[in-house]
């Protein structure tokens, strides 16, 4: 029979903390997020197909065309697929569409499923007191939580976009100039994706910090988007007809900034300067960061 020593023993290990607290939160948060997503297997499979389906399809099409082209008897098929290939070939236009249109519903779903509980659940279970009584400041805590939702959003936006470009560089690039151009496109895709990820992450974290339950944070998140996108943006534009009204729409601002960063004039609205959209987004980022840092406190002062 195994005899356990139940007494307390002292520990003289290294307490200097080589790993930052934010990294520990990210590590645990990703595992918890995956557990939440995979709670219902069928739902998880559907979400995965939805999130990565277009990406996998794009890679398969690129590979198929490359393979058919290199096989003389199948070259005809490759020629017939040129229209399809044009839809998935990484260009500023296709990447813009992929990032801010195609993946937007998935981004919403992940914000709701993973992001809404990140701070709200800690507030509900009084875990903030446990976090902040450790060698961990509020800034590190928020950075860790931001990294968790940022990880999931990047996984379905920036990462696939970059992989698509890399695959095309490996299969379809025919000259050094094209390789250089595609390298530049990677940087632009990362920048455009980062704007989208940062804005949506901070919005859901701000909603989460204002609630004590994930469900309530979701209501706040959706409510905010409905008000800004439909009520303020839609109605005001109908009434006033002034293009500057577009600035109140966060999704419009993100699209404009993404188009600007990706150097995609086809999607850039000439009536509203992208710089104005960037300033508005910066304002939101500062406001939401302030809200989060204000709500993340170990002690709630009621009086």
């Amino acid at each position: 029979m195994v005899v356990h020593d139940r007494s307390y023993s002292r520990w003289d290990g290294d307490r200097t903390g080589k790993v930052p607290g934010a990294w520990v939160i990210l590590d645990r948060g990703v595992m918890t997020g995956l557990a939440v997503l995979f709670k219902r297997k069928i739902f998880a499979v559907l979400l995965t197909l939805w999130a990565f389906g277009p990406f996998v399809a794009a890679v398969l099409i690129m590979y198929a065309v490359f393979y058919f082209r290199s096989t003389p008897e199948l070259a005809e098929i490759a020629r017939n697929m040129s229209d399809v290939l044009r839809l998935v070939t990484p260009t500023p236009d296709t990447l813009w569409g992929y990032l801010v249109n195609l993946q937007l519903p998935v981004v919403f779903m992940l914000c709701v499923l993973v992001g809404s509980g990140l701070i709200a659940e800690d507030r509900r279970t009084n875990a903030l007191e446990l976090y902040l009584s450790r060698p961990l400041g509020r800034f590190q805590y928020v950075t860790g939580k931001l990294a968790v939702i940022g990880f999931f959003l990047s996984l379905v936006t920036v990462v696939p976009a970059v992989i698509i470009v890399l695959v095309w560089m490996a299969l379809g690039a025919t000259s050094a100039d094209e390789l250089a151009s595609l390298s530049g496109l990677i940087v632009k895709a990362v920048e455009a994706g980062a704007v989208q990820v940062l804005v949506m992450s901070l919005l859901i974290l701000a909603a989460s910090s204002l609630a004590k339950r994930a469900r309530n944070a979701t209501i706040l998140f959706v409510g905010f988007l409905v008000v800004s996108e439909i009520i303020l943006h839609g109605i005001l534009f109908e009434v006033l007809g002034n293009p500057s009204v577009h600035l109140v729409s966060i999704l419009y601002d993100v699209r404009q900034c993404a188009a600007w960063l990706l150097d995609n004039p086809a999607e850039l609205d000439p009536d509203v300067p992208a710089l104005h959209c960037a300033v508005v987004l910066l304002g939101w980022v500062v406001l939401w960061s302030g809200v989060i840092l204000r709500r993340v406190r170990p002690v709630e002062v009621v009086a």
Partner: peptide
């Protein structure tokens, strides 16, 4: 805080 332990009065737990 690396040298302090704290057991809060309120029910407190890391969720999930």
């Amino acid at each position: 805080r690396r040298r302090l332990g704290y057991m809060p009065e309120r029910d407190a737990a890391f969720p999930h």
